[in-house]
Write a protein that binds this DNA or RNA. Sequence first.
DNA 1: CGAGCAACCTGCATGC
DNA 2: TGCATGCAGGTTGCTC
Length: 271
Amino acid sequence: MPELPEVETTLKGVSPHVINQQVAKIIVRESRLRYPIPADLGKLLSGQVISDVRRRGKYLLFATANGHLLLHLGMSGSLRMVQTGSAHGKHDHVDLQLTSGLALRYTDPRRFGMMLWLTGDPLEHKLLKSLGPEPLSDNFSGSYLYRLSRGRKVPVKSFVMNANVVVGAGNIYANEALFLAGIRPLRQAGKLSKQECERLAAAIKAVLAEAIAKGGTTLRDFVGGDGKPGYFSQSLQVYGRGGENCLKCGSPLKALRIAQRATVYCPVCQR
DNA sequence: CGAGCAACCTGCATGC
DNA sequence: TGCATGCAGGTTGCTC
């Protein structure tokens, strides 16, 4: 489910319920995620107050006085608030119970997500240290993309999906941004002009900002932390529309796979 | 270092 | 209905 807008939506949904709340206890029903959930997580978190929640890329960081809980939703993870002790389903792997009577529930059918405990500066952790800039920040721009892409032979789609280049451009939004920028996904990143890099950076910002404003993209059953679905799926121009007609020029959209990821583009509008 | 790809899992749609 | 196949929103970490 989650790309950056979905993670942002989740963050906004759960933040008000967890900030300044104390952890009563943590229930781990299944610890086998991408990395095992640390066995002593309950001991580390119980009694701690969550002072802040923030996002870095698609990672969520829950701050306490002793360290940070690092959470990634993987491909199928979600977080929501439930009443403590409410009935749980098969994939409700973790409940972080708060003294307020609410619990933060982590659900993840595919178990590609992760839940780790970090001490020290979380941004210096191996998993976060080499992440590229936030797409909606001023650190991410056309000139940055242009500079970084010189000499790179990978398809531009793979390039922008690389989290060390820029975070948050997952498969859906990479497809959409390339359409908006009028750039074919297979173009070699290093061969884009300065102007194309400007268009691409602007497109990535626009697509992500719109998706965040609409509460993310609902595919299958994604719901934000507040339980409400996202509406960006109604705005998708190319993702999931291979073989259908381009909404701009009417010609049939092409579908292919780039680095094993579904890719769709308009051969007329994108060059 | 860059590029390509396998791996981590389950659920679902499709076709026989 | 059952079974096999292929596909899915992400990321790491291995090879070459």
